[in-house]
Write a protein that binds this DNA or RNA. Structure first.
Lengths: 223, 223, 223, 223
DNA sequence: CATGAATGAGTGTTCATTCAT
DNA sequence: GATGAATGAACACTCATTCAT
């Protein structure tokens, strides 16, 4: 029954899309299932038929979000060899996805709403995602073109903080495309703010940070 | 009656402290006023006596957060002349506040929950805060030690994204103090990731971004 | 087509058996049609094909219960002439049915759930059943071996109360078979608890009760 | 605050009385909390303020029922010495309570609705109640006026089955008072149905039943 | 000032029933 | 005959807010 499978998938997507938009705009807790159903042009009972609980809907949304995100990034760097360039392109894909899909922002801000097993599954998902980025960073650093003193884990947090933060201020009608913003961030991170003429003699020591890695309370360290 | 004023202030602080902690852990919408009252060892009726609405409580919390934050930053840079150093110290103070107390973290993600006048007041509060940082950045850039092509607004977003993001991953038992994290971020931003030997000849063009400023949908642009 | 009739009957029995068990364990109102369908290894739609309403299912269950019960009792007393012995054997058959299958227990407590026409039909069913027992009792009393002062309607209630009550405390793994329990009840009812040496002189007056029959609110009196 | 305590107790009683009546007429599962609140002339939220869950309301109702029942029975037999007469008076009190208050019947039929800890507490309550009756029966048998072959546990089930069953057929407008019904039952149980002239020679063997006591699945045997 | 009982609109969820396939 | 997706009214329960004391 290609018809029924197709329509079933389409119905689920309608629910997930509607939920993603509302969760992004109003937040998970402030969004009612009735609003989601109405936005999907269905009735509350029908939503419950597919997703028995509101938490389950959020989890399904987040899963789809992470998968789509990773797929987009992998496609963006496919065939590119230079690890530093791969990092730049990955950042581009990430920001493009973050600003283009509602689900991505939901993943960022609403994971506190999940409890118990659903939360654990989300943590697992996120750890996998972070591990992927750790890999990209290690490969880029492995070229020898990075200052050797740089703490890659803090660098990852810096990059992600900047990129994710864009979800809070970006407006589609603004003057820059996501790609331009991403490249600008990358430029700042790669080359620094200070003119070369005004740098201290020993940049290395300024970049040096503690080497011990903290251990994460909710799972092992990725980096 | 300094006594009564003091005790009144203390009671309000108990409510705000309790609310700050709960909002951070569970989110604004997922926290009930009964929980806040119980955490402050009061009864729901008493909470409503001080803060007639839940939105009002969030707004008061945000106001206190911005004031405390700004006071900490101003104290940190008092007497320091060099604008670049002032920027570094301000970042330190900001992260110290963000990681040390619960209060302001709620500002980052929960303002979506506010509606109508409360939301407008929140936007005004945030705009004032951002204007302060814009001032710091312009002064630093005014030294001539920044690459002239840098978009200060994007730089502010980069810095704030990184700093605010730390609220999501920082653990007090981790290996670094807030000051160390802040300095490390500043080091990366100031000097860049790439070794000087591997930079392109024309860093300026890589840093150049569009000059037009986007207009903010929810208020005027600050920068 | 004896085949299709047979299979149709078998399917209906699967539904009724599943419903009987669940109604006994959880009660009528607390049992969902989905649970019944699942227990019968069918889907909700299929259950509704046979029994369009949940009330109808309960009614069908009750009908089957009364029919099976009466058939068992009739078989047990077939060929026995002595009306008192017929009464003892009927009690045995009744308890055997009640404890052996789930079906009829639901009749005892769940008819409150029915409304309107279904409830009237249930009352009719029950009245017919009670009329059968009234006949048995009148025949036994007609032998002249009963104390003449005994109110046969109250005696019927006593017997039924004891027998039906067994459905609430009986455990198959207990020390007595249903037949033993029934005979023990019959022994107590027939011969009394008090030793003959300790009876009052005038047992008759102690047994005498009012002769007027109450009228039933939900239908005519059977006895 | 005698006022508030008194009114608080009165409000709780209003809820319990309303719930008892509705549970008796429609059953626990078929009664909505809105109906209970309306019957108590309160709003749903107010009911929830006193009884956070519907199950808790049922449990409170049952507790009050058992306590009131026992208190009535104890008052009825106070000062009476003859154990057989005490038994007769206890049965009277029990039936009077059962037919006079809605709560009692709820205890009889709705305990299946309780789950987990609430169910265990109910079982404990019921065991205590049954133990009280066991005591009455043993004392009566201890007079030597009972047939020695009688199984007291089965006798208890017989008595309770008859008495409890009355809840299902009794109508206040009927021809007999609860006391008359109770005495009639007691007469039948005490002296038996069969006229002395028609008894078999060996009543003892007819009354004899197995001596081993079954163990209860949900707790120890009381008798 | 502080309380806590009461409110009632609204929430996530349930479930008997319908019906196109 | 059988299916299972869809329905929507109803459910138990929540909770910000009110207000008499």
């Amino acid at each position: 029954m290609p018809k029924s499978i197709k329509s079933s998938k389409a119905v689920e997507d309608r629910f997930l899309d509607a939920a993603a938009r509302l969760f992004r705009v109003k937040g998970f807790a402030a969004t009612t299932v009735r609003e989601i159903a109405r936005a999907a042009r269905m009735l509350p009972g029908s939503l419950h038929y597919r997703y028995p609980t509101k938490d389950g809907l959020l989890l399904a949304l987040m899963k789809r979000g992470v998968e789509t995100d990773l797929a987009g990034i992998r496609a963006a760097i496919r065939g590119v060899r230079d690890p530093v360039e791969r990092l730049r392109l990955a950042l581009r894909a990430r920001l493009r996805y973050l600003l283009g899909r509602d689900a991505a922002q939901v993943v960022l801000f609403e994971w506190r709403a999940l409890k118990g097993p659903a939360r654990q599954e989300m943590v697992r998902l996120r750890d996998g995602y972070e591990a992927f980025w750790s890999g990209l960073l290690h490969e880029a650093a492995g070229t020898g073109r990075f200052h050797p003193e740089i703490d890659l884990r803090l660098l990852r947090f810096l990059m992600f903080g900047a990129i994710n933060g864009a979800a809070l201020w970006y407006r589609p009608e603004g003057p820059r495309t996501p790609d331009e913003i991403s490249d600008a961030f990358w430029g700042l991170i790669a080359y620094g703010v200070l003119d070369e003429a005004h740098r201290p003699d020993d940049v290395a020591s300024a970049l040096r940070t503690l080497s011990a890695l903290e251990t994460r309370a909710d799972g092992g360290a990725v980096d």
